[in-house]
Design a protein around this nucleic acid. Sequence first.
DNA 1: GCCAACGTTGGC
DNA 2: GCCAACGTTGGC
Length: 160
Amino acid sequence: MSKATWLLKTEPDVFSIHDLEGAANQTAGWDGVRNYQARNRLRDEIQEGDRVLIYHSSCAKPAIVGEAIVTRAAYPDPTQFLPEHPAYDARSSREAPRWYQIDVRFVRHYSNPVTLSQLKQDAEFADMELVVRPRLSVQKVSERQYTLVLSLCQPMDVSA
DNA sequence: GCCAACGTTGGC
DNA sequence: GCCAACGTTGGC
């Protein structure tokens, strides 16, 4: 199975790529997803070893800010069982969990985050989910789109 | 803070 | 199962 690429959105005020980098083992559970389509992708499609682009939303400069890697495939999101937690779901149960999460590990920051504004201006990204369906929090990224993101996220390196 | 887009809920 | 009401997201 070849490695797939995903884009995960997060609000940096709540959990940023810097928080991921600073976490134990630079690894964190991607919890709190409460949308069925996003849940289905987490649960059914994302595999250990897949590549993840981290996107910062609801902030001054919405952008793809770096990369992570999936270190654990889907398992029940424990926050759904915690009554005090904002992501608690009274309709879920440990016998029939409703929500799932994955674990991701920090890989790197982009020296030049790729902004939403850039993506919108570039016709190459016209069919990217981030542009077409911006509210979905777990998005697929094609190989071509990933390659294009790479070409934008760092200064030109002629020695490479 | 506004508001458009869109997901979810619940009455019927 | 439809659809109106309502809630949330997230760019601007």
